[in-house]
Amino acid sequence: MKKHKVVYKLSVFGNRKGSKIVAKREIPFEIKLAAKLILDDLCFSWNKTHLETKINESIDKMDKEGFMILSKQYQPYTWE
């Protein structure tokens, strides 16, 4: 089993008189990276579906100007 390095950060809370020092364990890099990738994917897919619904609404309303603005915002999502 792979050994993990444990890093503690010391933080001072309160004022200088009688302040406490609390040790906080740092989150491993792999967990931070996985969480960031999952959040990025969730944001990407939500933004894409939100724009798709707005584009469909503008098509239903026959709003050409709104459609052109939204389609330019949607172009980066078509690189898949």
Rank of each mutant, 00 (worst) to 15 (best):
M1E: 04
M1C: 05
K2L: 12
K3Q: 08
K3T: 09
H4R: 13
K5C: 12
V6R: 12
V6E: 15
K9S: 05
L10G: 02
F13P: 00
F13I: 09
F13N: 09
N15G: 15
R16T: 05
G18P: 00
K20S: 08
I21K: 06
V22R: 09
A23Q: 14
K24T: 15
R25F: 03
E26Y: 10
E26W: 03
I27Q: 02
I27G: 01
I27T: 15
P28T: 02
K32E: 14
L33N: 10
L33C: 07
A35T: 14
K36V: 07
L37T: 07
I38P: 00
L39T: 10
D41C: 02
F44C: 04
W46V: 05
W46P: 00
N47T: 06
K48E: 11
K48Q: 14
T49L: 12
H50K: 13
H50W: 08
H50P: 00
L51R: 01
L51G: 00
L51W: 01
E52D: 11
K54C: 12
N56K: 15
E57P: 01
S58M: 09
I59A: 13
I59Q: 13
D60H: 08
M62K: 13
K64W: 12
K64C: 09
E65Y: 07
E65G: 05
G66P: 04
G66K: 03
M68F: 12
I69Y: 07
S71E: 15
K72M: 10
K72C: 05
Y77K: 03
W79L: 13
W79C: 11
E80M: 06
